[in-house]
Design a protein around this nucleic acid. Structure first.
Lengths: 333, 333
DNA sequence: ATGAAAGCGCTAACAA
DNA sequence: TTGTTAGCGCTTTCAT
């Protein structure tokens, strides 16, 4: 900027004004300055500008990673969420600072905010760290979380209606005549736990006893589907359906079922969760609970901005619906 | 920082020194300052620090998006690449600034660098913008690109060995007795073009004429696979195999083939490209050309850092191999 | 071992 | 319409 000022024979203040389209600057001077800036490929130093203006247009998006498993980001659902967040933020003129973070150190999720790099945090997944996130919110860190609604939640939480999702999938399986539905999901995590609650509610409505031997605690990693099927086989407990807590799990489960000579949906009906793009072209096409990714991203961004502006914010449970395809069998109408 | 200085009864200079573990500060003073900082949840303002130190630990990752199609980021391969880049950057202690950018405005890809927000750019995909990227490199913008090696390439380019990949897949299909291989990919883009070259080379080696009626220009969008199959059906030109330029394309193609009553691999053998995680659990399991994503990300990050440090940088073609599974048929040994 | 002062690149009062 | 000056939060020389 100093260079431009010297070359244009004006002060840096005038250059600053010209670059910011201030009406206070002479038309001819402005033209000269802009031309100079263009030819020098000059861009304002955003860091210095932010410092001076005490502003910031960067949002930090945090992706928790299970430390011990050294899993890399593999679930297409989460990845798609990331893409939609990038879209939503770009739309609002914000940059996205993207970070992985160990799920055991969620307390450090506020670092980009504390250090002034970002004006707020979007956290994708709460894991078992409800309390730690609550502490951040109590500290006034602007944070929005993708996850399940929990009691005593101080932070703004956006998520699908997991109980309803659990009901929808289970009701569908029951309508198709399935009675022994294996549930693949880790009840230590809030979202699977709520889905399981919906699942049990549906069973009870049909006067079917909840059988704990049909519940298999598997992680969201791709191997989860494999492990779930192997565990059921090991238990030797009969089952005619699988409720998988993600499409990724459903896909690996179906592959493993097939390896073990079980036909899908004939022998075992399978429902997934998320409705990722590939669910529609998987074979058999996945019947799955649809989570509205783009809407989720937009809602999270809008909530965060509202939070930052001191506006009202409420947690939201996004509507959920069932995408009926082939993997659970055809519904006869 | 001024707050801490006041509370500790020292100058900000001392606080700065204490926080940066300078040996010049009294043990007891340091302890008092650190304790104060902890209790106030104080973090150094990175923007100001960068400004003063003229340093920066942020790398910009740019994702081109086709403007007209308003496609959102949907290819699992690209998404996985993003995850691996995040890992590789975190590993090296860098932050990742993530942006979408219209593929028609790649000239603006250097904006985060020009404005001092990032020390370098990683661009995922070169599209038809070879010249524009060359201009950036000529301007000394530190940039590393994922894409195909091209003549007169001034920028550092990391990519798979596309010609070899094309050969591998085609050789495999030929070995399985296929002779009329449809090629799904847009030859206007460098990577598909090189794969096609390898494809043709393999055909010629087997004295099979290249038939342009088997070449279908489809985009990398999910619909590409559908369109490819529909176009082949429309042409009414017999084919017994499909070479798809991505796994996503292969999957949607297989689904569409099935819809049209063609069995895979019995009637039509299909090979994909990328070897994404889901390729292994798709049905039939995808035979596909493997691109080493994690290695790609590490190489790009290492190259960029080397470039920034004025070290030597060369473009790299990463080794490629075929993951043989079921979608092209079983190879009899 | 500590403080005073200058300056990183920018913007906004205030003055001219 | 333009320039001078101060200061955003930090680090570092130089002095003490």
């Amino acid at each position: 900027m100093a260079d431009i000022a010297r070359l244009a024979g004006v002060s840096t203040a005038t250059v600053s004004r010209a670059l910011n389209h201030s009406p206070l600057v002479n038309e001819e001077t402005r033209a000269r300055i802009l031309e100079l800036a263009r030819s020098l490929k000059y861009s304002i130093n955003v860091g210095a500008q932010n410092l001076r203006l005490k502003q910031n247009r960067t949002v930090s998006v945090m992706f928790p990673v299970e430390r011990d498993t050294r899993q890399h980001l593999s679930d297409p659902f989460l990845l798609a969420m990331l893409g939609s967040l990038a879209d939503a933020l770009t739309e609002q003129g914000f940059d996205m600072l993207f970070s992985r973070i160990g799920s055991d150190e969620l307390g450090a999720a506020a670092a980009p905010f504390d250090s002034g790099r970002a004006i707020g945090i979007i956290l994708i997944g709460q894991w078992q760290r409800h309390e730690q996130i609550n502490e951040l919110a109590a500290r006034q860190v602007p944070i929005v979380v993708w996850g399940a609604h929990l009691p005593n939640q101080l932070y703004c939480c956006i998520g699908g209606d997991n109980v309803r999702g659990g009901e929808l999938a289970t009701e569908h399986l029951l309508a198709l005549g399935r009675r022994r539905i294996a549930f693949f999901g880790d009840l230590a995590l809030p979202e699977p736990r709520q889905r399981y609650r919906g699942h049990c509610a549906a069973l009870e409505r049909h006067a079917i006893a909840v059988d704990p031997r049909l519940q298999v605690p598997v992680s969201f990693l791709p191997e989860g589907g494999v492990q779930g099927v192997l565990e059921m086989v090991r238990r030797g407990h009969a089952f005619d359906a699988v409720f998988a807590c993600s499409d990724l799990l459903a896909m690996t489960a179906i592959d493993t079922l097939r390896t073990h000579g079980m036909r899908v949906p004939d022998d075992v009906a399978v429902t997934g969760y998320d409705d990722i793009a590939q669910a529609a072209v998987f074979h058999p096409r996945l019947t799955t609970v649809c989570q509205p990714i783009a809407l989720a991203a937009e809602t999270m961004v809008a909530s965060l901005l509202s939070l930052i502006n001191g506006g009202p914010v409420r947690s939201v449970e996004l509507p959920t619906k069932l995408s009926i395809r082939a993997s659970a069998g055809e519904l006869l109408v």
